[in-house]
């Protein structure tokens, strides 16, 4: 069973969403609905499932409904119609008390503009999730310190958030989300407010943490490079509709419509495609010339090993962290993945 299951969710913003719903279900467009009723469609029949331990990236331009979507998962927003279930429980059936318990123990969230408490120190901010659970200060400070160290902010625990730079503030946000040790992490444009250098730093840090923790992450972004870099699966939203769900390679190689095509047109593929994605599995690689091989880690991006391959005119042997051979990459695969369709 999927960790998170979203079924036919509609969200309409306005005074009387339930009256507009049939119209939307009949296929009226966003513009028609807005003109006729003054209601805005947030989500239009979105269904998707997110598996345990994967990073699911939800991508779209602003106004496409991605932030609305993520808020349905922990029910900060109630859907107009449809079902959201997490680990088999329908979130819509929870009463107020159960909902609070659910938010405390099942998932945590990171916000675009950090959402830190300005009147609390870094330590208190990180321990907030534990504080609302009712943990004693000594206990929660201990956990909070561990997480502060995990994101590399030791020494800053008694500072206030606005004494820190943007990147550091978001690390506090990340540490706060990690502190409650929930299986699911929701990240709402978590890195969008950061400058590019710090952003790629944070992406790296998130990937490192994720490789250890194996949480289920739902990540929202408007940046395609980011989504290709982080996502195991990517869902692309346009005007409240989910237009395509697939692996990064799926999205780049087989864009579902013009919207997605326009999106992926300028992507530097070498930068976002990992070795393991294009490799031929070892079991199917009988015909590969193995005399001249370059060893490549499965998580390396093409640009990282491409120069080596070209210089040596070699094929690649893809290995995992333990050094087991996972597959091979020949010129054919490289060519296919780098050619723009």
């Amino acid at each position: 069973m999927s960790k998170i299951e979203i079924k036919n969710v509609y969200k309409i913003f306005g005074d009387q969403p339930s009256k507009v719903l049939p119209m939307v279900k009949d296929g009226a467009t966003k513009e028609e609905v807005l003109e006729k009723t003054g209601h805005t469609i947030g989500l239009d029949n979105v269904s998707l499932s997110i598996e345990e331990g994967e990073t699911f990236v939800c991508m779209g331009l602003s106004g496409s409904g991605k932030s609305t979507l993520i808020r349905h998962i922990n029910r900060l927003i109630d859907p107009t119609s449809g079902e959201v279930s997490v680990e088999g429980t329908n979130v819509m059936n929870l009463d107020q008390k159960q909902l609070i318990e659910f938010r405390r123990h099942k998932m945590s969230m990171v916000f675009q503009r950090f959402g830190l408490f300005p009147h609390k120190t870094v330590l208190e901010n990180v321990g907030y999730g534990l504080e609302v659970q009712g943990q004693k200060p000594e206990e929660r400070n201990k956990t909070a310190m561990e997480k502060i160290e995990a994101v590399g902010l030791n020494g800053f625990e008694h500072q206030y958030p606005n004494q820190l730079s943007g990147g550091m503030q978001q690390r506090v946000g990340l540490a706060r989300a990690l502190a409650t040790n929930t299986d699911i992490m929701l990240m709402d444009e978590a890195f969008s407010a950061l400058d590019p250098l710090i952003r790629s730093d944070m992406q790296k840090q998130l990937m490192d943490l994720q490789s250890e923790l194996k949480k289920t992450i739902v990540f929202i972004t408007h940046d395609l490079d980011e989504s290709l870099r982080l996502g195991d699966h990517i869902g692309i939203l346009n005007g409240g509709k989910l237009v395509q769900v697939g692996t990064p390679v799926d999205i780049i190689m087989n864009p579902a419509d013009d919207y997605v095509t326009a999106f992926v047109k300028d992507v530097n593929r070498a930068k976002v495609i990992k070795a393991k994605i294009i490799m031929k599995p070892a079991s199917e690689a009988n015909g590969v010339d193995k005399t001249n091989l370059v060893k490549v880690q499965e998580d390396q991006f093409i640009e990282e090993f491409l120069p080596q391959v070209v210089c040596n005119n070699a094929n690649c042997e893809v290995i995992d962290k333990q050094g087991n051979v996972k597959g091979y990459i020949t010129n054919k695969e490289l060519q296919k993945s780098l050619t723009k369709s």
Partner: peptide, 26 residues
């Protein structure tokens, strides 16, 4: 700040905790 209140909610603060811990101090 709406996002700060939302953060409190997302971490499972009850109405009382939200009021005394976040809204009133701010």
């Amino acid at each position: 700040d709406k996002e700060v209140v939302e953060a409190a909610e997302a971490f499972g603060a009850s109405k009382k905790q939200k009021l005394w811990g976040v809204q009133l101090p701010l």
